[in-house]
């Protein structure tokens, strides 16, 4: 609650989604990033949950509204409704379970079907702390990310490894896209909200307005 007021002050609000197979650690990535918490005994995510955190990019405050989704396949019909308006995604797999890596392509398709083509995607190999159990090599994952033209990072929510980096990188990239588009448009001050807007939708549509995410 104490952070509540600070939450209100931001220049940009970006909606991100966390997707990937069940049990890869999406919820713990989220809790690590937003509350610096990790729970070995976490509960299954049903449907969707969300959390927010604001970070500074350049001289701007960027608020991330992050939607965490249920991993079970059949929930995609429900969770995909929450992809709308997302400008960034973290597609998570578990480096110790190869099948979660194999399923990444389907998740990617899911994203591309339901989100804007310009969405910033970070491919995240989580549980990198379990070195002796690794089943997906960094090279394979990197190659995949290059082929699919996404960003890539290996993380450990448990060891707090790269979690901050992964989210910050996505938010920064989105910010760059948005501000570059703003520059392209020129000196139209109306194109960008300057902090006065608190409505989630307005902000997201403002992003759309400047052309980053024309549907």
């Amino acid at each position: 609650m104490s952070a509540y007021r600070a939450d209100e002050d931001y220049d940009y609000l970006f909606k991100l989604v966390l997707i990937g197979d069940s049990g890869v650690g999406k919820s713990n990535l989220l809790s690590r990033f937003t509350r610096n918490e990790f729970n070995l005994e976490s509960k299954s995510t049903i449907g969707v949950e969300f959390a927010t955190r604001s970070i500074r990019v350049d001289d701007k405050i960027v608020k991330a509204q992050i939607w965490d989704t249920a991993g079970q396949e059949r929930y995609r019909a429900i969770t995909s409704a929450y992809y709308r308006g997302a400008v960034g995604a973290l597609l998570v797999y578990d480096v110790t379970r190869h099948v979660t890596f194999e399923n990444v392509e389907r998740w990617l398709k899911e994203l591309r079907d339901h989100t804007d083509a310009n969405i910033v995607i970070m491919f995240v190999g989580n549980k990198a702390d379990l070195r002796h159990l690794r089943a997906v090599s960094t090279e394979d994952a990197k190659a995949f990310a290059e082929r699919e033209n996404t960003y890539f990072m290996e993380t450990s929510a448990l060891e707090s490894l790269n979690v901050e980096n992964a989210f910050t990188e996505v938010l920064t990239q989105i910010y760059h896209v948005v501000s570059r588009k703003a520059l392209d448009i020129g000196d139209d001050p109306a194109a960008l909200p300057k902090g006065e807007t608190i409505n989630v939708k307005d902000d997201v549509s403002a992003v759309k307005k400047v052309g980053c995410c024309s549907v």
Partner: peptide, 19 residues
């Protein structure tokens, strides 16, 4: 709130509480 389809939580009502 029309645009806030982000908040469509109703089908999750029970599960959310349950979880």
């Amino acid at each position: 709130l029309g645009g806030m389809d982000l908040w469509t939580l109703v089908p999750l009502h029970f599960h959310q509480y349950a979880s």
